[in-house]
Amino acid sequence: MREIAAGLFMSLDGVAERPDRWMGRYWSDEMSEGIAESLAASDAILMGKDTYLAFEQMWKPQGDSNPMAAFLNGTHKYVVSSTLDEASLTWPDTSLITGDIAGAITRLKEAPGKTIRVPGSPKLVSWLLAEDLLDELALNIMPLVAGEGARLFDGVGKEIPLTLTKSNSLKTGVIGAVYNRAG
Rank of each mutant, 00 (worst) to 15 (best):
L89C: 05
N168C: 08
F71L: 05
L137P: 00
A130Q: 09
M23L: 10
L144Y: 13
L8M: 05
A41T: 09
I97K: 07
D43G: 00
S81F: 11
T172Y: 03
L72D: 13
I101D: 06
A54W: 10
A69P: 05
K77G: 08
G120D: 06
S11R: 13
M23D: 11
K77D: 14
G24V: 04
T172N: 03
A16V: 03
L89A: 05
E86R: 14
S88H: 14
S42R: 01
E110S: 12
S81P: 07
L124V: 01
L139H: 09
K49P: 03
K166Q: 15
L128M: 05
P19L: 07
D132F: 05
L162Y: 06
D20E: 15
S38P: 02
S95V: 03
V145I: 14
E56L: 12
A6Y: 03
A69M: 02
E86F: 08
K77W: 11
E56S: 15
A150H: 13
R151L: 03
I141A: 05
P161Y: 01
W22L: 07
K109T: 02
L164V: 06
E56N: 15
M1F: 04
W59M: 10
P19W: 08
Y179S: 04
M31P: 00
D93S: 14
R18T: 09
W127H: 06
K114C: 02
G120V: 01
L152C: 02
G147D: 05
F9G: 11
M142N: 14
